[in-house]
Simulated scan of single mutants.
Amino acid sequence: MRIVDVNEFYAPAGGGVRTYIDRKMSILSEMGHELIVVAPGRADAVEERPGGGRIHYVKAPVLPFDANYGLFWDAAPITGLLDAIDPDVVECCSPWRPAWIVGDWQGRAVKSFFMHNDNVAAYPQRWFESVASPGRIEDAFAWYSRYMGRFLAKYDTVLTNGPALQKRLGARGVRIDAAMPLGIERQYFSPAFRDPALRRALLAQCDLPEDSLLLLGLGRHHPEKRWPMVIDAVERAGARIPVGMVQIGIGGDSKRMEKRIAGSPHIRLFRPVYDRERLARIMASCDALIHGSEAEPFGLVASEAMASGLPLIVPDTGGCAEVADPRSSERYTARSAESCAAAITRLYARDRPMLRRAAEVAATKVRSDREHAAELITYYEALVAAKRASARVA
């Protein structure tokens, strides 16, 4: 099967989308399928991948506030590539210009719109939360759901990357045909990588003794991640129990983050760790992952932490809540530092050996990226067969 992904969010220096697509391209090649990405670039170019698959960069203007990414506008270069490649399936995930370009293309392929995020939760819900209730904000932005409905009608199927997004969008009346939960590279994460010496060293950097609770915060410094709320919660809990946090990340809010924790004795910021083995050791050596974003569509970082044998402290809505195992996790009311602090305190009070065993059992159940790819291919094969059968009858 040949799949083309018209992806406005793919960039050489990109983050999660690039990682997901590169890994998916490799897995599909091993399965005997081909994934070709059409992405915006500074110039027209083709990048062949040694393991199979390729990237077609189409010259496009850069995103005004992030030059790492581009914006598709002209349809002809994209539809010309689709005509030439003649895929079995064409995917799209951008709700802007690409959604219409792919939706209006008249090729024989199955057209699949793959939802990877919730723009209403990520932006308006956060921008206006101090002046309106979530329900009022939802009502005010109902036009966006109606807008999506117009281009989604042009697609053969509409997918999400997990049940959280399926529930959230479905509740707004957005058409969703199936959820295809993502997976992680399981081989990189394991409780076996736990290093007591590393844990002691991290606690020492937080100026805490060995019997303290060591939390890990992992993610970019962006308002959507709600790190200030998490920091407030850790400091509140710290008034009652010995707890510290190491936060690994970088982003537009890094300066504000540094200013926020200045003088905090038990919270430390670290630059991103790109070495997978080193990150896996750090992750497995902490006591729990703490996460603040209720807008997270799937929760890959939560899945990686679970595969490392970590308990979770996560909001009660969103992708992280969906993947969290209740026997080894604590949930709190989203956006509430007070509720989050109470969840930290509850986790600290639990029986450590029992909690560790529950977390290690949960680690064995984390979905892999290969399982995701296999389920997606099976789903697409059925759609392709049905569409071709229908074309023969017509």
Rank of each mutant, 00 (worst) to 15 (best):
153 A>T: 07
292 G>C: 02
28 L>C: 10
180 M>F: 05
295 A>I: 09
176 I>G: 03
47 E>K: 12
291 H>D: 04
226 R>V: 05
98 P>G: 00
62 V>K: 12
20 Y>P: 00
234 V>L: 10
369 D>H: 14
7 N>S: 14
32 G>E: 04
12 P>I: 10
367 R>T: 05
366 V>E: 07
228 P>I: 09
48 E>K: 12
360 E>I: 00
215 L>A: 02
394 A>H: 14
129 E>R: 15
171 A>N: 13
71 L>Y: 02
64 P>M: 11
59 K>T: 12
26 S>A: 15
70 G>H: 15
183 G>M: 04
97 R>N: 08
339 S>W: 05
204 A>G: 02
370 R>C: 09
349 A>W: 07
334 A>W: 04
345 T>C: 14
233 A>G: 06
326 P>V: 00
228 P>G: 11
230 V>S: 07
380 Y>F: 10
46 V>A: 09
8 E>R: 03
264 S>K: 04
233 A>Y: 07
273 V>L: 14
384 V>L: 00
47 E>L: 12
145 S>F: 09
173 G>W: 01
117 N>R: 04
12 P>Q: 12
112 S>V: 02
200 R>D: 08
301 V>N: 02
226 R>Q: 15
312 L>P: 08
178 A>N: 09
195 D>G: 01
165 L>V: 05
113 F>L: 01
63 L>W: 09
375 E>G: 08
241 I>E: 03
267 I>P: 00
27 I>M: 10
328 S>E: 00
225 K>P: 04
320 C>D: 03
105 W>F: 15
11 A>L: 11
98 P>H: 00
207 D>T: 06
316 D>V: 08
276 R>F: 08
341 A>G: 13
70 G>P: 06
